[in-house]
Amino acid sequence: MQTICVAGVTVNITSGDKEYFHRRYSDYVIEYTDSPDMSIETRYCEKVEEPQGEEVERIRASRIVRLYDGTLCRYIKSSKTGKVPFAIYFTEDYTNVLIELEKDFVFQGLSNREWEYLYTGFMFANRLSLLGGTVLHSSGMAYKDNGIVFSADPGTGKSTHVSLWKERFGNDVAIVNDDKPAVRLIGEQFYIFGTPWSGKTELNINIKKPLKAIFFVERGEENTVEKMSVSDAVLNLSRQLPNPFYDKNIGIRTVKFIEKLYKYNVPVYRLKCSISQDAVTAVYNEVIGENYEN
């Protein structure tokens, strides 16, 4: 087991694929605590037993049951084989999470390790939401002390855009998290935090930086930056923040978080851009200032 601290959240985490995840979490390890904010254990099982309890909800292939002790469990059961490829047990506040995966079973094209990565990340995001923070699907970077996040649907080029900043400014740019930085309000300032859940690139650093702006990236021929209307900002944010179908409370927390971003005037922009340094200049001029010298 490792004890890690991510965005101020302490997690006692027991991995299934120990070799891989011990390395991945290594920058976040702290001394053991017997009172963490949450505990996550992943087990690779020869067979995942179907949970027995009162069915709370069934949404498409997913079933959610409540066990006799109040613990919830979400799982999928194959209608053809009766096989249960995974079961995730969690308390309503996500303080205790147990992820069971059928050993060596490739489910929907993903391996045990990939499912472990996804579900540990989702469960952490849910716990963080209940603690007042969130995880934003985006590439988060810091130019000096200015945290900027670039969000978009996969394949739009947000990571590529951040790599252009790194190419241009070198060590003045830190890639805080290339896929899912955490965001929290501390006092009256929002910060972005590195987390170990950064997608395949594993680009993340255990730091926090003041959040200066949020950009939603769209491909375009011209490089333009414009402030989003409130409704556009909410629409885009709500699509890239946690809002799982199995727990409306997390979605409600996400809406509250968006309200806080609005209250504290965190600017939300639309960046239409090509893959070029001109796009970096457009953002730089808007967020950092116009006195840029190459």
């Binding site: 949404i59 727990d247 409306k248």
Partner: peptide
């Protein structure tokens, strides 16, 4: 159930949550 109304400045928006997002 599952639609959250939010007032942001002069705008009023409603966001689906939970199962409604399906």
């Amino acid at each position: 159930d599952g639609f959250i109304k939010s007032n942001l400045g002069e705008e009023c928006v409603v966001v689906p949550v939970g199962a409604q997002t399906v």
